[in-house]
Design a protein around this nucleic acid. Structure first.
Lengths: 245, 245
DNA sequence: AGACAACAACTAACACTGTTAGGGAGCGAC
DNA sequence: GTCGCTCCCTAACAGTGTTAGTTGTTGTCT
């Protein structure tokens, strides 16, 4: 640093108690320890030993803070990226599972990430990793862009939906399994003459096979990618259309 | 005279002024007119000519009200369901586009629906429609359940992500198109030596081709469904495994 | 007719929330 | 010194979801 001239003389002039970096780190601590609902300007400020209005010097909004936290979360997830293997399909699958697992492990991360398009180093690292892999597999630039976006949408959306009934059950003190089957009971109790297919599918719709459900949706998407035309580059990826079902 | 309290005269004041149905209808009115951020217990109560705490007689939570609103939204969308055509793929595609269009037209509906699994008549109608179609096409029960869930996750997640930058731009008074390309500029400005693929894909990642992006993701998923085994039932839908790519 | 329970609204209040206005220390530069 | 900048402070506002306790109305049973 020690920027010259135009930079607003930021050379260790008065060590600020709150830097943008410390702010993000404190926010992540609060998020992980107390959850998103307890993450207020005041609680994050308290984590820094400071009062709430001070944060507005570093950040315009709570929204902006959340945007930064979203990117910070991605930055945390980056070291957990699965190592590079040979097959693009295996890699993409591993990546999706790893992402889902991360979202489920890191408290409320999915609620912060949902609908946000972070534009910091965290997002850059994840995207670069993924785009490089897809390029290596021979996907075109536009396709690769769509694929990364689609995959992140898919996983994020899935985990978001997967976590809501769970947290609701936890709040009510009901075991998750019973809460889920309770929804099934509700559906099964619908009038079978007007909703025959729905009632017949009640169990399949609400079954606790959450991993299988994720697997199904993901594999269908990957199947769709497999029939996409690719440039025959180095490392074609090995698999053709459908290998497992 | 001696007006009975502040009762507005000739109405059946003590008749149930608030029914659960009226509550939901009022909530939908407020949601459409003022948006989700302005939908508070007080504002919905005001819409009914009533004070906020009264709502707690009919509803445990704001959460429960939102659950009801979610189902109400689906109920509104039901008449807009596309008519039945022959090919399951065409039907599923039409349905996804119609759902996306509905979510984009009906204010903040995606924020209400996201992550919620409504359990009322609105959800029942949508599900029945979809499950019947999939059954007619020969998909198994479990597959059909996964497909409906996956499709709704996909569309909802996509629209959620699609609407956030738009609303942010609207708030800031910036045209949407410029706001989106601004993100592209940010990404393009990343160090190209550490993030070569990312920088090279900046335009493709943030291009305003939002419809094409949706189409790509959806069609990939449908491609994945096309290679799924199906029972040869009545009305196979005309297509076998893979017809168009 | 009178009593009683039920329903369904009310007022008042609590503990929070995000956010703004304005004040004032500590510092570098003139 | 006196600017002026940075960065945190106190005070306050308008609004939130939600609970407690109260009051009035209605239908039913005696």
């Amino acid at each position: 640093m020690t920027g010259k001239g135009r930079a607003p003389a930021d050379g260790a002039r008065r060590r600020p108690a709150v830097t943008l970096d410390a702010l993000v780190r404190a926010g992540l601590v609060v998020l992980e320890r107390d959850g998103l609902d307890a993450l207020s300007m005041r609680s994050v400020a308290a984590e820094l030993g400071v009062r709430a209005p001070s944060l507005y010097w570093h950040v315009r909004d709570k929204e902006e803070l959340l945007d930064l936290l979203a990117d910070g979360l991605l930055g945390i997830g980056v070291p957990a990226l699965p190592p590079v293997r040979g097959d693009w399909r295996v890699e993409l699958r591993d990546l999706a599972w790893a992402f889902r697992s991360f979202l489920n492990r890191r408290r409320d991360s999915v609620r912060v990430l949902m609908g946000r398009f972070p534009s910091g180093p965290g997002m850059a690292a994840v995207m670069e990793h993924q785009l490089a892999m897809l390029d290596r597999a021979g996907f075109g630039r536009q396709d690769a862009a769509y694929i990364t976006y689609g995959l992140s949408t898919l996983v994020t959306g899935f985990v978001y939906g997967e976590q809501r009934p769970i947290s609701a059950a936890v709040v009510a003190g009901v075991p998750v399994r019973e809460a889920v089957t309770a929804i099934g009971d509700t559906i099964a109790a619908f009038p079978a003459d007007t909703y025959p297919h729905l009632v017949a599918t009640a169990r399949e719709l609400t079954g606790p096979h959450i991993d299988e459900r994720f697997e199904f949706i993901l594999e269908r998407f990957l199947d769709g990618l497999a029939v996409l035309p690719r440039n025959p580059k180095r490392d074609g990826g090995g698999t053709t259309a459908a290998e497992d079902v």
